[in-house]
Structure formats: structure tokens, C-alpha cells
Design a binder for these strands. Structure first.
Lengths: 334, 334
DNA sequence: TTGAAAGCGGTACCAG
DNA sequence: CTGGTACCGCTTTCAA
């Protein structure tokens, strides 16, 4: 089923069919009607590949995330998608599962698709990519990794400040031995997040910390918690790298009869919806995911009226959100 | 950046470049090396649109889901994706948010992309579509809606049996007044799920039921619960259409000081991971999401060796999973 | 083993 | 307002 068949049936040229399809230039009303009729009768749908090949453009933006299963990424994705749709763009998504080879192949896939813009909301990185990306001339925005470059924008959260707020708060509650629950992707001192956490603790001499990591899932949070507790270290508070892992942690503690926050304080990060719905509701750090999504879309899709969102780098300062999963360390002795 | 430029740099024809790209037919080794070098130096990535246009095929399958935010859909999606990748296929996803106009445009988008196969894991439906789909000659699989057709496979869960198991179980625990928490998409007696629930209750004369619905989210579950309780009806058990809404329900009950399962029993559906991690862990009905994902992929992507997964219709019988959110109705009087 | 050239299904420019 | 036609970038015969 192609343009030509439709053209034949409507007794016009393919050019005209194309015109009504894109309701471009003026087509006589009677002709248009005939064409539309033919299209419907044939249930014709234009081949999008041919279209973007011929047109040279794609009206599609690519979004790559580390773990769509984590609502944090999903929320950002969803915002981008809805903004993009509102501007007449499609979006294609790719999930890397924190694997940098996946990131590489996803990025290449996106380049192959000649997307109009690319958002990489990922924690992992592959240095060789930025050059390829720069060459591709595709507008790119990175979240959490990378550095500003010619055609690439950077959005980052001041994770360091966020984690400091958590540490200070726990310290003020009397906690001295802290556990850090991370996921594999942030393992190792190379990682900004891990480093930030360690540094935040190091500022305060009386503090002691120990970390454990597992997958970025509910189950991973549970396992990491189990591992940490099995190590013999006895923290009175657990700082989790995100809310999902914190919920996993909560479960492990519950099964061990460790009361939260009575015997152990737990903090999350991101402030995803679930953090309010779990029990106890999590003290966490808010990362404005919708705002991030909007910024991403603004810097990728040039709006008609507005200026093309200049800033090559945007930094977001996260806020502490107090709820029920944290309490004074002293309570434990009661 | 295109084939021709690479060809020029490697001093060969575009045909040859194409050959090494698809490592088809025999290319002399020295030539191949030269071409590969040119490709790398130029950081060339083939235009996928041109490729699928010329080749006539796309090695991409489309997956449309109602609400990716609900892990139920995500789990199926993820299985399909990993199976597809294993077979050398890409997958493009679309989310409908239960809106049937979105379903329509997503399906058309997929047809436009000339996907090699299409999976519709959705609850909503638009009758006019099946004809278009049939005409498109694309292999399609529907979950939960639709009827088998020439090129379309159907997978369905015997929701009726599942809900009966829940109702019977609650009845055996002494519950007589049941609340049903659904989401908008299943509202109205037209919907299979809603009907199944009502029928399951109707089988047992002593039972009384009242329903409320809201969005398919944690917050929606909470709101629906609030609405139901505000109506004056006083159930001793709440049957939720899925786990996510059940977790939302749990929160509302907790804030009202209604103990679960002491004062109220709550059941979920799907058995997503979260149902084990929430508090109390949910009694639910297991739907084998991975199995569904595998079946989908098998019926869309013809495997090399195996026969092309015949069955035009697959029915899955779900199992009840008992956990901590249900208990005897009598306990309430204690 | 390699090159030339005819499409694939549209778009868009140029005439008429 | 409509038709003819030269591409878009790649695959795939057909010959050499």
C-alpha cells in the first residue's frame, strides 16, 4: 500500500496525495475529498521511514534511561513524552539497565534513527561517545553525567548538597554510625554520588559509615541491607541512594523485627510517589523530575515563540523532605 | 554522512560498503578492512530509515501498553524487549494511558513504522482498529482484549476465575460486605473485569458489593478507597483490581487508623514485586507476566528452529497468593 | 570480488 | 491548483 496506489485510485498524482497528507499548499476541495476517500478506503498509512528519509527530518526525539523500572526515570520520561507530543514530536525510548555497552548501542541506534534530539538520563557513561555525539550534530542533553559541549546541554542535581542535608539531619538526631545502601552503578569511589556521600560523612569526624550495594530494585535494596547488617557493622541509620532501594530496605528491617524509626532510621532519595505510600513514609530528598523533564524537552525541541533555552548547564538544588522513617538515635535505648 | 562518502573515502562502491555493513556475500579481506577503517574514521552510522525502506523490512516490533507506570505492564514489556533483543529485533514502545484515542494513534504510528510485529497489552479497545490491523498484514497479539483473527493472536487471563478465587476466599473468612476498587478503564458493566467481579459476587447470595474507581495509580487507589468509605457503605474487605491500587488503598486505611487485616482485609491482583514489599504484604492473584511476555514474542517473531507458536488463543489461569493483608472478618469484633 | 543502477515510498521544487 | 520528477540513503540484482 503506497502513495501511488492511492494516487491511482483518486486519479491524481502522488504529489497531490502527498499534499493532502501534509495538508500543505492549497488543494482544491473536491480533489482533497476524493483523495481522503481513497486513503480511507485503502486504509492507507504512509511509510514513516520513507517520509523521514525524503524529508530529511524525523520529528522524533530519543530518550535513554538507566532503569525505567525505577519511577524516578519513568517520571522524567513521561514528562518528556508529554511535552514532546504537545509539540508534535514522537519519542522513542531505550533502557540501558545501567550497562554501558547498552548505552553505547542505544546511542548508536538513536543516531541511526536520525532523531531530532537525544536525552540521556543515565548514570553510566562511555567516554568515547561524546565525540560521536558531537559529530552527529544532534542536540543532546545529559542528566547526571557528562560535561557541556557544543551541541550538548547538561542538567545536574547537586547530589552533594542533597546528601549533606541528609547526613546533617541524621547527625542532629544523634546518629553516629551510618549505613549507605547503593546500587551497583554507583559503586566505587569514581562515582560522583558515592564520593559525595563519603565526603559528606567525612566532614563530621564523629561519624562512621559503611556501604553495601546491590541492584537498583526493591529486592536489591533488601539484599544490600541484609549484606550490610550481616557484616557486623551496626548502624542506627541507613542512607539509601534512592527511594526504591529504601523500600526494599524497609522490608528487610521489618522482617528482622527492627523498628523504623524506633531502632533504625532510613532515608530515601528522589521523593517518588511510592515514598509517601510505603510504611513508614520515607524521609527523602526531593528531585523535581517534572522540572527536569521540561528542561530536557525545552533544550531539545526548539519552541516556536520562545528562545531555544540557552543554558548549557543547569544545576538543581534538591530539598530534604521529612516524613516518618527517621527519628532520634537515642530512642533506641528506650 | 552517508554511504557514498564512506565509499569514496574507501575507494569502493556504495554496494561494497553496504556489503561489509551487513557482512553479506564475500568481500575481500583487504577491501573490508579499508571500508571498516573509513567507517570508523568518519563515525558513520547508517540511516535506519533508508535501510528499512530499501530492505522492505524493519526488524522492529512494536509494543503498546496501557500504563507503563504500573509494574504489571512494565514487567511484560521488559520480557518482550529482552526476548526481542536476543533475536536481533528492536522494540519501540507506546503508552496509551488507557485512552482509546491514544491507542488508535499509537497503532497507526506502528503501522506507519511498518513494524514486523505488534503487541497490544491494553485494556481499552477501539473496534474499528481490528480491521485496519488485519489489512496491515502485521502479526498482532492482543492481551486482554480482542478476538482471534487471521493474523492476530490472543492471550487472555481468566480474570473471572481469579476474581472468583478471591471472592470465595474472602467469603470463607466470613466477609459479607465487599468493596471493589477499580480504575476508570474498567468502569462500567461493559468491561470484562468489572463484570467478572460482579458475577463472582452474585454467585453467593449473602454477599453485598459496592464499587469505586479512580486512576490506575497509588494515588488513585487511595482516592477510590476514600470515596468508597465516604459513601457510607461499610465493607470488611476490599478487592482491588490490581496491586498498585491496593497499595494506595492500604495508605488510606492506615491514615484512618483502620488496621489491615484486623479491621479490613485487602486484596490485590497481578502479584507485582511491590505486593511483597508493602506493609502488610498483599494477598493477591498471580499473573505470570514473564510467561506472557515470552508468548507474545514467540508469536510475533518467528524463531529459526521452532515452529511459529501456533495457538491463535492462549488462556492463562491465575493463582491466588496468600499473604498478610487478609484475615477473618470476625476479628473485627475483637 | 566488485561496480552500476534500479528501486523502496515519500517530499518538494518547477512547470504548466 | 496539479503533475512531473529529481532526489533522500540504502539494498539488491545483474554484469563484469
Amino acid at each position: 500500500m503506497n502513495l501511488e496506489q492511492v494516487a491511482r485510485r483518486a486519479k491524481v498524482s502522488t504529489a497531490t496525495v502527498s499534499r493532502v497528507l501534509n495538508n500543505a499548499s492549497v488543494v482544491k476541495n473536491s480533489t482533497r475529498t476524493r483523495v481522503v476517500k481513497a486513503i480511507e478506503e485503502l486504509k492507507y498509512y504512509p511509510n514513516l521511514h520513507a517520509r523521514s528519509l525524503a524529508g530529511g527530518k524525523s520529528r522524533t526525539i530519543g530518550v535513554i534511561v538507566s532503569n525505567l523500572e525505577n519511577p524516578f526515570f519513568f517520571d522524567i520520561y513521561k514528562t518528556i513524552e508529554s511535552d514532546a507530543h504537545a509539540r508534535g514530536y514522537e519519542v522513542v525510548m531505550a533502557n540501558t539497565d545501567y550497562r554501558s555497552e547498552q548505552l553505547v548501542s542505544s546511542i548508536r541506534l538513536m543516531i541511526g534513527r536520525r532523531v531530532a534530539g537525544l536525552a540521556c538520563i543515565v548514570s553510566e557513561m562511555a567516554p568515547e561517545l561524546i565525540e560521536e555525539l558531537e559529530q552527529s550534530r544532534i542536540p543532546v542533553v545529559f542528566y547526571d553525567v557528562g560535561r557541556p559541549r557544543p551541541n550538548i546541554t547538561n542538567i545536574r542535581v547537586n547530589y552533594r548538597r542533597g546528601i549533606e542535608k541528609v547526613v546533617d539531619y541524621l547527625h542532629s538526631l544523634g546518629h553516629r554510625k551510618l549505613g549507605f545502601i547503593g546500587h551497583h552503578a554507583i559503586l566505587g569511589p569514581i562515582n560522583e554520588r558515592m564520593k559525595a556521600a563519603m565526603d559528606a560523612v567525612a566532614r563530621i569526624p564523629s561519624l562512621e559509615v559503611r556501604a553495601a550495594a546491590d541492584a537498583d530494585t526493591l529486592e536489591g535494596g533488601r539484599q544490600a541491607t541484609r549484606a550490610l547488617l550481616a557484616s557486623g557493622f551496626a548502624p542506627t541509620a541507613l542512607i539509601c541512594v534512592n527511594d526504591i532501594m529504601a523500600v526494599g530496605s524497609l522490608r528487610e528491617l521489618r522482617e528482622r523485627g527492627i523498628g523504623v524509626p524506633r531502632d533504625m532510621s532510613v532515608t530515601g532519595f528522589d521523593n517518588v510517589k511510592l515514598s509517601e505510600f510505603c510504611y513508614p513514609a520515607l524521609t527523602t530528598v526531593d528531585i523535581p523530575r517534572e522540572r527536569i523533564g521540561h528542561i530536557v524537552c525545552d533544550s531539545l525541541v526548539p519552541r516556536p515563540g520562545k528562545p531555544p533555552a540557552a543554558d548549557p548547564e543547569v544545576v538543581i538544588d534538591p530539598e530534604l523532605v521529612l516524613r516518618d522513617s527517621t527519628g532520634p538515635a537515642a530512642a533506641r535505648e528506650a
